[in-house]
Write a protein that binds this DNA or RNA. Sequence first.
RNA 1: GUGGUUGUAGCUCAGUUGGUUAGAGCGCCAGAUUGUGGCUCUGGAAGUCGCCGGUUCGAGUCCGGUCUUCCACCCCA
Length: 460
Amino acid sequence: MANINKPSIPKGTRDFSPAEMVKRNYIFDTIKTVFRKYGYLPLETPAMENLSTLLGKYGEEGDKLLFRILNSGNFLQEVSPDDLKSPDANRLSLKLCEKGLRYDLTVPFARYVVQHQHEIAFPFKRYQIQPVWRADRPQKGRYREFYQCDADVIGSNSLLNEAELIQLIDEIFTRLSVNVKIKINNRKILAGLADYVGEAARMADITIAIDKLDKIGKEKVFGELQEKGFSQSAIDKIKPLFELKGDTDTRLNTLSNFFKGSETGLKGIEETRMLLHLVSKIFPKNQVEYDFALARGLNYYTGTIIEVQALDVEIGSICGGGRYDDLTGIFGLPGISGVGISFGADRIYDVMNQLNLFPQETSSSSVLLFANFGAKEAQYCLGLLAKLRKADICAELYPDSIKIGKQIAYASERGIPYVALLGENEMHARQITIKQLTTGEQKTIADTDLIDFLKQVSVE
RNA sequence: GUGGUUGUAGCUCAGUUGGUUAGAGCGCCAGAUUGUGGCUCUGGAAGUCGCCGGUUCGAGUCCGGUCUUCCACCCCA
């Protein structure tokens, strides 16, 4: 084993083995099936986008996490000595790179909608399942390449869309047997809050701090607000809002008293009430609740925000989304409202793996392996194999004529349940000896009965 | 991006204050069994101790750098 260079993959990326792919595809297939059922159409966009499409859409933090692609050819052409001396690395990178890997699926989708606006029938419902890349520092459940499964509807203001998405979330997690809590909130309420404390311009800081409530507790949230320079009087005004008690109606009513002066805040409360009402009509199997502290980082959300949490495993959110009123405005098409959600397939995988929720499936699809007894016998098997395949039975022939024991061990390892032993004796008698690997049982049948035998066996 | 952490055989891990040829279990390969996997027995292969450099007569062990792993921040799926 003289390895010149140990092979490896970049930090935060993964290989998926066949066994893992079977499980991953189970998740993707479930999600896709439900997306289609609700009328969402497939869409794919390139792995790379122009940096101008991506920059500035995810906040300052997000810009840092974009993977940039070095220009081809003489990429130093545009660079001046001043650029190299400048402490602003970003300035240099803009001259070296004009493309970047996509950071999420929503922004490329917005780009697509604007670019193809004349071909699209609005409201446009699309789903998209593709990897995205972030130059984040990896941790458990956090990768630099991971898949997002998005469903968005753009070109409609109706809260029916939000309700439908919640129904869709509910159905997908029910199908996957993952117990979840679906939390909703509204950015307008958070804007109302910022309004209320007289810091309307600093809503982002407030929401980021509030988002941590679950994790660090309210004292630390106040501490963080203080650190960020909010006045004590502003913080004192926020405090009572953290003490909201009672059911959702009561809490929303209390809030609306606070927000009397804020039109936006009241609108948010109204929307939330309406959405909860609509959701009550679809009888979700999972819990749907209003969460005042839900904020979500992405700053393009303007209305409803949604986040889904697994109940039985400690992990970040496994699905999230919301309404963005003007995402396409940046690309020159203002006034089009959209709402969408994104499933984090990798985290869903982790959750299901920990809870053992994947259905039992063999990693091999073949039910039968013909052992290879030699050139003559192997050729004889080809005919039988062709018949099996014509009958849509997955079967294969071991390609090399090695020890039978090895071939059986191979089938066993592959999870193939039956091995056909067809040597000279069987060949002349037009028979097949079939060994079932789970039990070790073995019996000889006429070769004309093979298809019936396998069909019967696969029904069991 | 900040602070910490990890790396020894395919895998999980030992390896004493720096001292000969770096070990174990599992796995792998071969044979016992030339047409029968799992069990058993016998034998075997496999490691530039993450990488680069330094200190030393001597480094898996100490120091620096770098990459990787995981964790807490930041942020997020």
